[in-house]
């Protein structure tokens, strides 16, 4: 992904794309029937729609190494340093506190927004530079040589 710097000023590159294929731009095979089904009222609803579960399985299936690939890609993709934030498990269910804490970290590092080239990346289970407690408090802050 792009780090947020000002555009190069080389002029705008225009791309034209039918809206019908926007969600599936690789295969260019959007079906109007399927799109209509997505836009409309869900079918008879008294059971279970597994689409979200299928999507999670697709993205995070360890056998497909999707998650590992994402982690590696994330390290190399950003030109700017990535600040990792460790979020306490219960805190992650209090979104307001997580967002407030992440903003606070951004202020502490001098990176007020992604536009400065710093990406904040959430992780839960590993030691990282910052730790947000279950109450939303930042209780650890240290720098390493990597940053």
């Amino acid at each position: 992904m792009a780090s947020r710097k000002y555009p190069t000023g080389l002029g705008t590159v225009h791309i034209s794309l039918p809206a019908a294929v926007a969600g599936n731009i690789n295969s260019l095979s959007g079906s109007l029937k399927e799109i209509a089904e997505q836009l409309g009222c869900p079918k008879c609803v008294s059971g279970y729609n597994c689409r979200f579960q299928l999507e999670k399985d697709y993205l995070f299936d360890p056998a497909a190494k999707k998650l590992q690939k994402v982690a590696i890609a994330d390290q190399s993709a950003f030109a700017a340093p990535t600040v990792r934030v460790n979020v306490g498990a219960r805190s992650s269910y209090n979104l307001d506190s997580v967002i407030a804490s992440v903003r606070k970290i951004a202020e502490l590092t001098g990176h007020t927004a992604c536009a400065t080239g710093c990406n904040l990346f959430f992780e839960r289970f590993q030691d990282r530079m910052f730790n947000i407690s279950n109450t939303g408090r930042i209780n650890e802050l240290k720098y390493s040589a990597g940053l």
């Binding site: 992904m1 792009a2 791309i15 034209s16 794309l17 809206a19 030109a79």
Partner: peptide
């Protein structure tokens, strides 16, 4: 990393 620059996608109907 993506190429920086001004890009625009026009979604046609």
């Amino acid at each position: 990393e993506s190429q920086l620059g001004d890009y625009a996608i026009t979604l046609t109907g």
